[in-house]
Computed example of a mutant assay.
Amino acid sequence: MSHPTITLETASRIIDAGQEKALDLGLNAVFAVLDAGANLVAFERMDGAWLASNDLALAKSRTSVMFEAPSEALNAPLQLGEPVAHFDHTNGGLLLMGGGVPITDDTGRLLGALGVSGGTPEQDAEIARTAIS
């Protein structure tokens, strides 16, 4: 039995759509597409994108794969006196801010995730949602 996966061709189409949206917003971004096992399928950094965005895009994509949810959905507001959930000691790192979105097939099965970094978390999330739609 084969498992559903994301192809390089599909990952490239998603990144192309994301780059178009980033340009519309006046941003230079980094895009990381992982498969459902959190393995890198495609990675592109637009000219002029921040070097720090390389790690951030990967972490956002990894977060979306691991939780099968948009990375910003896991970002709960801080409450004084309450413990803070953090993942700074996980292998590979996770990031609980906008810009990571799961990629699913028509039946809702997880194929992978896209991570975007280059703007605010809200801009990154908008780019990612546009790219996979």
Rank of each mutant, 00 (worst) to 15 (best):
A69W: 05
A49M: 05
E44I: 09
L40W: 04
A42Y: 11
A52T: 12
S53M: 07
N54W: 03
V41F: 05
A52K: 12
A59T: 13
A36N: 02
V41R: 08
S64A: 15
L40V: 10
G48L: 09
W50S: 15
N54D: 14
E68M: 08
L27A: 07
G48A: 10
S71H: 08
S61G: 15
R45G: 07
V65C: 06
N39S: 11
M66D: 09
D35Y: 01
A29P: 07
K60F: 01
E68W: 08
V30F: 00
L58N: 12
A52D: 13
E72G: 06
S53W: 05
A49R: 05
A49V: 07
N28E: 13
F31P: 09
S64Q: 08
L34D: 02
L58Y: 13
S71M: 05
R45F: 04
S53Q: 04
E68D: 13
A32C: 15
K60E: 04
A73C: 06
D55W: 02
A73L: 07
K60G: 03
A42I: 10
A57I: 01
S53H: 08
P70V: 04
V33N: 03
V33D: 11
L74G: 06
A69T: 13
V41G: 03
K60S: 01
N39D: 12
G37A: 10
L27W: 04
A52C: 08
S71W: 09
L56S: 12
S61F: 01
V65W: 05
G48K: 12
M66I: 09
F43A: 07
L56M: 14
K60A: 05
A32L: 04
A38I: 00
S61K: 03
S64E: 08
R45K: 14
D55L: 13
N54K: 10
A57W: 02
A73T: 12
F31N: 06
